[in-house]
Amino acid sequence: MGLGTPEKSAQQVTSDMAAPRGRALIERPFQWALLGATLLALALLAALLADVLIDGAGRLSWDFFTDYSDSLDPAETGIRTGLTGTMSLMVLTAAISFPIGVGAAVYLEEYASDNRFTRLLQLNIANLAGVPSVVYGLLTLSAFVYVLGFGRSLLAGAMALSLLILPIIIVASREALRAVPQSIRNGALALGATPLQVTSRQVLPIALPGILTGTILALSRAIGESAPILVVGAVFSRRADTWPWELFEPFGALPIQIFNFVRQPEPGFQIEAASAGILVLLALLLTMNAVAIFLRNRYQKRF
């Protein structure tokens, strides 16, 4: 038996390292449950998409994009006004929120000293990102539409969406700026660059892909919104194009257009045209997200 001792102790080791028998009973079902949850979510999404595709794909045609809405004949109707409205909102919202958001982020990251006030500011910006979108609509309604007299105009709609996504842009831009190594700033300063030159010639160019990614994702959230622009007076207009420079004209948007289709009793509007509109909106959002992801991957961390 003396010779068998090493063998026995080796066996001892193996059995020590083996998982207790009860654990597999918990681990396995847990994994299955997680997988099930994931699959369920995906399946729901796929079902929705399939449903929309089946209902709407038939209506997709060049005319659908370029035609004004027709209240009588669903086969003749189009989403032209909604599309121009959404495009105009997007351009204006970007023009307003990008410089302000990036400016705020640069200030907080590169210039502000770390004191109570700036920390309070940062906390509030983070909180603002979670405020329900309709609240931004109400804020815009009282501040810009009434007090500043913007009226229920395209500019007011873009203001509401800008307020909505500003916190997102600020947070994303700050993260992009923070990812720029301090040694880059020191290197530039040691060459006699002014703080402004350091920011504009080194830090911002390096952070730009990250900032753009955040901005595009934020914009894609903005154009899917309907509550805030409804509150400030987005309309379903049948006959008028919206252009980004028509600041004080009434405006529409794709989500409003879709809502208008859905409200009509006729299936040609309620189901087919609405689904086609949803497809367009989805395609727009997915394209933007794809661009954002491309930017992120293409220019990610070169350090």
Partner: peptide, 12 residues
């Protein structure tokens, strides 16, 4: 008065 740092820090 120029400075060279401990870790090489070339600009990207």
């Amino acid at each position: 008065i120029g400075m060279v740092f401990q870790e090489p820090n070339p600009f990207p």
